[in-house]
Design a protein around this nucleic acid. Sequence first.
DNA 1: TCCCTTTCCGAAAGCGCTGCCAAACATTTA
DNA 2: TAAATGTTTGGCAGCGCTTTCGGAAAGGGA
Lengths: 358, 358
Amino acid sequence: MATIKDVAERAGLSTTLVSRYLNQRSGVSPSSKERIRNAIKELNYRPNGIARSLVLQKTQSIGIVLDNLCAPFAARLISGLEQGAEDFDKENKYNVMFCSSNGDAEKKRRHINFLTQGRVDGIIIYGSLTSDDTLISELAQSTFPFLLIENDVEGIPVDKVVIDNVDGAFRATEHLIKQGHKRIAHMAGNMNLKITLERMNGYIRALQDYQIPISSDLIIHPSFDSMELAVKDDRYLRGDRSYYSAGYREMKKLIDGGNLPDAIFFATDISAFGAMQALEEAGLSVPDDISIVGFDDEDPRDYGATNHKITTMRQPLYDLGYIGIKRLIQKVNNPERPEERIVLKTDLIVRDSCKSKK
Amino acid sequence: MATIKDVAERAGLSTTLVSRYLNQRSGVSPSSKERIRNAIKELNYRPNGIARSLVLQKTQSIGIVLDNLCAPFAARLISGLEQGAEDFDKENKYNVMFCSSNGDAEKKRRHINFLTQGRVDGIIIYGSLTSDDTLISELAQSTFPFLLIENDVEGIPVDKVVIDNVDGAFRATEHLIKQGHKRIAHMAGNMNLKITLERMNGYIRALQDYQIPISSDLIIHPSFDSMELAVKDDRYLRGDRSYYSAGYREMKKLIDGGNLPDAIFFATDISAFGAMQALEEAGLSVPDDISIVGFDDEDPRDYGATNHKITTMRQPLYDLGYIGIKRLIQKVNNPERPEERIVLKTDLIVRDSCKSKK
DNA sequence: TCCCTTTCCGAAAGCGCTGCCAAACATTTA
DNA sequence: TAAATGTTTGGCAGCGCTTTCGGAAAGGGA
């Protein structure tokens, strides 16, 4: 591969001049320009961005690492990220690069390590790492600019943008309460996840606020299988179905138990979809026999479910990305700014799965 | 940011030794190791990958640039790429990074330029560039390893893996012929695209082979709007709907014209979905009134269509990615290998949109 | 004791580029 | 004509790392 030196030699000029030409700086005479242009063409020269970045201490790029590029929610998140990068810095455009770990924690680690070794100017990490994520705190010690989305790690000052899960769950439950429901159950998510705790918290607070007694019978803790195969008919089904099966199983138990609650707030739509299948099979109707509110605004079709129109709390994924990358770029350009924790609210999307109780 | 020099100084050793330690080479005594380890921790040192890559002339990463990361087909392609990278080089794992241009040709160009300036060891470009893609030929002149997927540029020796569109269209048409259809129409795609020509070519050859007269009345050239908004209800619809509308319009004309063909072979499923809506609205049935074969195996739900079960030619997208990245990594490790053009066949997926003619 | 391995270590060159600074040249002004 | 100003140009250091190569130290055998 030809280098800037080769070009300079060929053009009979100094590398300084060639560099100036390449970066369209002033101080290059027209005749020199011409000679450099020719030399470049003759040698098929392509500048080495790596070397350039080394001296400039800047790559003009941003890395994003997430678990699953093809996940149902990813599209909206990605759009937000791309658009944010576009809108923020119109002249010095940032190149946004995505790395997908496909649920492999080790791979995610590797990606983060790779990118944070100066390969990009900053990174955004979506979602949590394994429980013992010393990597985040190590990163926080260094000065490398990074930002977390949907990973509300505690104890370390870190830039992050997160969802207000407590508020979302509160409002979801409140929605049910305001429709006159009293026996409101909650089907929790994976208890290893912080968001599960937060959502349960919101549920409990809503009941407390409206002076509805909290019954532990009505709080359901499904057990989750490990991630279920997301491939069907060689067509990639975008979502992990383990929550679906869990919802199905628990709903079945509930139906068999005989004492159905008025309403259920699900920590995630996916479990709700599974539950709805169980209800359907039992000849029960949503919302006539039971009201349901979910969370996440998932697309039932991504989980092979029938097209339920479920009332749900929707995460502002686009905004998560948009705001996140804006903040990161600010950080890149002004490392002194103190860390921020940005909280976004969820939206209540009212569909057909709830009904007022007479 | 601390550098290797700082670490060496702190440890009271040379940078050479620190480098050796970092790369787990022999020739570092246990006591030195200990001191280096401490120095690294104390300084929060992270090695600079950029500098490392500059001297090693290797980044251990691969870049992928495509038009739309969130496109319906992308999931399968991405899976293939990721898996291929994984399977090929188990010890020196490559980091795969994705760049999405969202249909912006200038952005795609920028991404390609960025990555090919030594930022990665090789890139894969999915889909075509603008018609005047001098960029590809420039790249071909250089020694930078790259590979094209689904972009069968001519005249330049380039590594690429492509679909056999002629064969696919031939077999699609043949499928119709063998069911006894005689008046088989073809709805073409965007005539600026080479694949459109190839698919039409396959259609014509099939008719010729089976001695069915070719009638230009039966070859429909829809006009396509520019890319249609792919957002609906703030939920990102994954596909571009312009082909859908075109299919709808043309089918309507055909119905109004009165003289419906026995069958239609569509250059893309998306047009077929649109056409099927028109047929439905006209009270006509597929496959009773007309048989249909499509191409691409698109998911109707990605285009807001009802869930048609269409017989179609499916592209082996996973394989495209899997084989493509394997080939690229080979190229990276052995630049001398001459360019290859790998052709993959499509699969006929029989569903419910065709019926034998009595 | 000497010589020969073996192990550990560091100086220095260099990867391809940019930016500072001074030198060379050209042009204008007094 | 000399001085002052403006425009081009190139030498060189240095970005953070690896690697070569020779030297020092330590251990072993005679």
